[in-house]
């Protein structure tokens, strides 16, 4: 191929040494703050995201917004000034963060059982500390963990993952910033991995429709893998709290 650099070398390794279907290392932690009702921290490779959840609580600032049959989910996305290579002030209401907030809202509302908490509001705040590709998936995964930490009922985990097409043929998973910049279309998928429902699909650029099924399948597999990793963290966290409190108040 005439491209300057290939996304996957001929021995099948990517720029950072991963295989095509390999996720970056995920490390996560629940309950990182004491003030919010729920909080979480996630690292996917070098991408680092913090999430905090407040609520469900009474709708503040005018009862008119409150809904009689469901909770309002309020998402706010922000990026730290030092999160990218170039230091840049990012005001909260700019186009990119508004778009991210809306996408986040779409993914979370699909999972939260909002109908259980009428007249209330759930606030989800995510902050990107280090952006290295796959910001949106990391935010969704962090928000899921924070919601679980807050004890808010979810239908199931909502996970997100990216996938791309290398060398115009091989689908690859969990795109890093370097690979994003080098080109190639990026497909972002947010899904409910257990019931295999897609809740959000976004494409950074066009590619041939023939490739879509396999790229989508790869991304969905990524969501399932991520869900399994998160699940281990969640049950470890429950075990830790439970055995510290010696399962107090439990019958």
């Amino acid at each position: 191929m005439s491209r300057k650099k290939e996304l996957i070398s001929n021995i099948g390794l990517r720029l950072d040494g991963r295989r095509a279907g390999e996720l970056r290392r995920i490390r996560c932690k629940l309950g990182v703050f004491s003030e919010p009702d729920g909080s979480a921290y996630i690292e996917q490779g070098l991408t680092k995201v913090l999430a905090a959840v407040y609520g469900p609580h009474q709708v503040r600032g005018g009862r008119s917004k409150a809904q009689h049959d469901s909770a309002i989910v309020n998402c706010q996305f922000s990026m730290a000034v030092f999160s990218t290579g170039e230091r840049k002030r990012r005001p909260r209401g700019d186009r990119k963060s508004t778009e991210m907030s809306i996408h986040l809202h779409q993914a979370l509302v699909a999972a939260i059982k909002v109908e259980l908490y009428p007249w209330t509001q759930i606030d989800v705040y995510v902050e990107v500390l280090h952006a290295d590709g796959g910001i949106y998936p990391a935010c969704v995964n962090a928000a899921t963990l924070a919601l679980i930490d807050a004890g808010i009922p979810l239908k199931e985990y909502v996970c997100a993952c990216t996938a791309s097409l290398a060398n115009d043929d091989i689908p690859m998973i969990d795109i890093s910033h370097q690979e994003e910049v080098m080109g190639g279309p990026t497909l972002t998928v947010a899904a409910l991995p257990m019931s295999k429902k897609v809740v959000l699909l976004e494409m950074s650029q066009r590619f041939h429709v023939d490739h879509l099924p396999k790229v989508l399948k790869t991304a969905l597999q990524g969501c399932v893998d991520i869900k399994n990793i998160l699940d281990v963290t969640v049950s470890n966290n429950v075990k830790e709290i439970g055995s510290s409190t010696r399962w107090g108040n439990m019958t």
Binding site: K155, Y157, S195, S235, V238, K239, E240, S243, S244, M250
Partner: peptide
């Protein structure tokens, strides 16, 4: 800061 005592952990359920 954990003061975990590992004995008879009941079954844990997670969303979904």
């Amino acid at each position: 800061t954990s003061v975990v005592i590992n004995r008879d952990i009941p079954a844990i359920y997670t969303p979904g």
